[in-house]
Amino acid sequence: MVPVRLTGPRLAVREFHHTPEDVGALHAVFGDPEATRYLAFEPRDHEDCADQIAQYLEEAEKEDRTVYRLAVTRLADADDPARAVPIGNAALGLGPHRSAHLGYALRRDVWGRGYAGEVVALLRDLAFGPLGLHRLQARADVDNAASIRVLTRAGFRLEGLVRHDYRRGDGWRDAYQYALLADDGPAGGAGQGG
């Protein structure tokens, strides 16, 4: 495995570690009903989060890696970003035709600080740079105004509505489909937006 390490103005994105700190940090996001409100799954317990990180590490070891599930940390939280406790996660799932699906989720207490925009910029740079992808796509629940702002500020264009995209306990949820192409041009460097 060649570990992913990305650095922006305030954030670093790295591989998860199967440590109590990283498991607890993932649970702080995936176990929070408000933080998972617009995700395609119900809140997860601590054990599920430990299993998730084990899966992330297994995926990272594959020779032809197609999934990048990464820890988001703040540079100010540690001298070494590899030791900083994550504030969220970021994901790229590679698809056919040099494309990928982008996703992110952050701990509720760090919302509203522009971190999501910086995460999207870092993933965009990874996708269109070292990974050589052409198309990034992302979906946002129709009621998730914050994520919609992040994507549009990052230059993603609305492609349409995906009806009944996923099901939660309260029923089927619709999502907007967004995409950004490598030749769309930059919408700003890491740290701009949301």
Score class of each variant (00 low, 15 high):
79 D>P: 01
62 K>M: 12
32 D>K: 06
86 P>L: 10
162 V>W: 05
86 P>E: 08
67 V>N: 10
113 R>V: 14
12 A>P: 12
136 L>G: 04
180 L>P: 04
68 Y>A: 07
124 R>P: 03
90 A>D: 04
63 E>P: 06
185 G>T: 12
13 V>Q: 04
68 Y>V: 04
140 A>N: 02
55 Q>E: 12
133 L>M: 07
66 T>Q: 08
178 Y>S: 06
138 A>Q: 05
92 L>D: 03
138 A>P: 03
154 A>G: 02
142 V>K: 11
107 R>H: 11
66 T>P: 02
100 A>I: 06
141 D>H: 06
63 E>F: 11
20 P>F: 03
153 R>G: 03
69 R>V: 15
46 H>K: 05
158 L>I: 03
38 Y>F: 09
150 V>S: 02
167 R>P: 01
92 L>V: 07
152 T>Q: 09
31 G>C: 11
63 E>T: 11
116 A>T: 15
52 Q>D: 08
161 L>W: 04
72 V>Q: 06
18 H>F: 13
194 G>L: 01
185 G>R: 14
2 V>E: 03
46 H>D: 09
179 A>C: 11
133 L>K: 07
182 A>D: 15
16 F>H: 14
84 A>L: 04
46 H>W: 02
113 R>G: 10
102 L>E: 06
56 Y>I: 09
4 V>K: 00
72 V>C: 12
78 A>H: 10
136 L>T: 01
36 T>M: 06
33 P>I: 09
85 V>P: 04
70 L>C: 12
157 R>D: 01
60 A>I: 02
103 G>A: 15
28 A>V: 06
115 Y>N: 14
188 G>W: 02
104 Y>V: 01
109 D>S: 15
89 N>A: 15
160 G>Y: 06
185 G>S: 14
42 E>D: 03
82 A>D: 11
42 E>S: 09
64 D>Q: 14
3 P>V: 04
142 V>I: 15
23 V>F: 07
80 D>H: 10
108 R>I: 04
182 A>R: 15
63 E>A: 13
16 F>Y: 14
3 P>Q: 04
122 L>I: 06
72 V>Y: 02
182 A>S: 10
28 A>F: 09
79 D>T: 10
91 A>M: 13
154 A>H: 00
23 V>Q: 08
184 D>Y: 02
23 V>I: 14
60 A>Y: 11
109 D>P: 09
186 P>K: 03
117 G>F: 05
83 R>M: 02
37 R>L: 11
173 R>Q: 12
18 H>T: 07
4 V>A: 00
105 A>N: 03
176 Y>V: 05
85 V>T: 12
142 V>L: 10
23 V>K: 13
25 A>H: 11
64 D>N: 09
123 L>G: 01
53 I>W: 01
116 A>Y: 10
44 R>P: 05
80 D>E: 05
45 D>K: 09
103 G>E: 03
101 H>M: 07
128 F>M: 04
149 R>D: 00
162 V>P: 02
134 H>W: 03
34 E>L: 08
93 G>Y: 10
44 R>I: 00
113 R>K: 13
105 A>S: 05
166 Y>K: 01
143 D>M: 06
153 R>H: 14
132 G>Q: 05
160 G>V: 06
175 A>I: 01
91 A>C: 08
117 G>S: 14
75 L>K: 05
78 A>C: 11
70 L>H: 07
2 V>I: 11
75 L>M: 08
154 A>Q: 05
192 Q>T: 15
59 E>H: 14
61 E>C: 14
168 R>S: 13
158 L>R: 12
109 D>G: 13
184 D>M: 10
